[in-house]
Design a protein around this nucleic acid. Structure first.
Lengths: 233, 233
DNA sequence: ATATATTGAATGAATATTCAGCAAGTATGT
DNA sequence: ACATACTTGCTGAATATTCATTCAATATAT
């Protein structure tokens, strides 16, 4: 009903094209099928892609939107700002990571050694340990020091995780009277896993399997009474 | 009577004093005395500051110029572009790091164990291992995967370093017939040191000393025939 | 019909880059 | 000594670019 200026005729023509192009193919992404939550998730995935491919500094909303096959303004509609999209993305990865190691802990046996083994294995699981996700983590790490919000979510292994590792190491020490300080060993172990992640991300031909093997070697060496190369005793 | 130039708020005042400053002892930075190389170095230091303080994404040429107490156009005059300034900065840090561990290796004794000990100690030396520099490294890490130029310089421990560590581990193994695979141990060791760096940078109250102690604990455990907590045997 | 999701052009803010000009030094001529 | 032209480091306003954000128009679903 609203009357349009002369210039707008062009615009309309352009839009018509875009629409008909959209109708032809993909129902899944185009069309209005997607729920709000689905669309948010789709945008988060596109953000991880962009972070992995281009790094934090080069990640633009345009790239995210393109990656999701949607239009330019879409992010500001579903998230309020770029900043909020990035925080939601980081939050998602942190939640996923935490859920993953918690699940691994559930499935592990009662024995302390089984728990430690399971936690280490979880870190090198295909689901978590992909180049794509490691690269996205690393993109955030680079910015974390100067942004409290990121820092809180980025201590990839958060306080709860770190406390757990320390407690488990202390338990192992008590069981077999190893001589080392539990906190020191726990620090060394988790630092090593982070370093292995980092190397995987940088991708010098290091594989997940080799990285896991290095971590296992460490376990066997430090906890000889509890671990073998094949698994916990 | 000396001119103080630490406060950026007084930019105008400082600029005015350029003339009189030349007369005083301040001619190192102000005035026209600074050689091209000196000025480049000054700008590189300001860049490290900015990276450490604001992260890669938030580092602007304006901030670098302000940090150096110079004018806006200065970076494009001495370096050609922002990109080239950043590469020069990374190159500087990589050179400094390499020079540092090479020097440590020189000073170390002939024994293989002394060399390994020295390399580990070098990584946690005050000169290299400051929060400022670790933060700058981390800023580059985040971007490295998507930029070949950075990636080449960022494998903080480069090919030469990695080969050296592997060779030393193999040597120790031969001397005392440890059972592990030298490459695996070398990987674990260097990954752990990188992880410790990372944690120091994130700064959860971890100190250089504690980090070094964790690395030493590892050496003692893995090479019991060669190492003690106090040093190589 | 109304509400909701989506589009994409327009806007504006941030910031890298350019460049004409200034000033401090230096060389040459008188 | 002094003057003149020339070089070099530097400045900062102007320009160009990139990109997040906004919003009116439009499409789709209920």
């Amino acid at each position: 009903m609203t009357v349009v200026l002369s210039l707008k005729n062009k615009k309309v023509a352009v839009r018509m094209k875009a629409v008909s192009a959209a109708e032809t193919g993909e129902n899944d992404r185009r069309g209005r099928k997607a729920s709000k939550e689905t669309r948010r998730q789709q945008l988060i995935e596109a953000t991880i892609d962009s972070l992995a491919k281009r790094g934090y500094a080069e990640t633009t909303l345009a790239d995210v939107a393109d990656g999701a096959g949607l239009s330019r303004g879409i992010v500001n509609f579903h998230f309020e700002s770029k900043e909020k999209l990035l925080i939601a993305t980081l939050q998602f990865m942190a939640d996923e990571y935490a859920a993953h190691w918690n699940a691994a802990l559930e499935k592990a046996g009662e024995a302390t050694s089984s728990k430690v083994w399971a936690l280490v294995a979880a870190d090198f699981d295909r689901k978590i340990c992909t180049k794509r996700k490691l690269a996205a983590w690393c993109a955030f790490w680079g910015e974390a020091k100067s942004r409290p919000t990121y820092q809180a979510l980025c201590g990839a292994r958060d306080v709860k995780y770190q406390d757990l590792i320390v407690a488990l190491c202390a338990q192992l020490k008590a069981e077999a009277s190893y001589s080392y300080d539990a906190e020191t060993i726990a620090l060394a172990l988790s630092a090593m896993m982070e370093g292995l992640w980092f190397r995987l991300m940088m991708g010098d031909g290091l594989t997940r399997e080799k990285a896991h093997a290095a971590a296992v070697e460490y376990l066997v060496t430090v906890f000889p009474g509890h671990m073998t190369h094949q698994g916990p005793k």
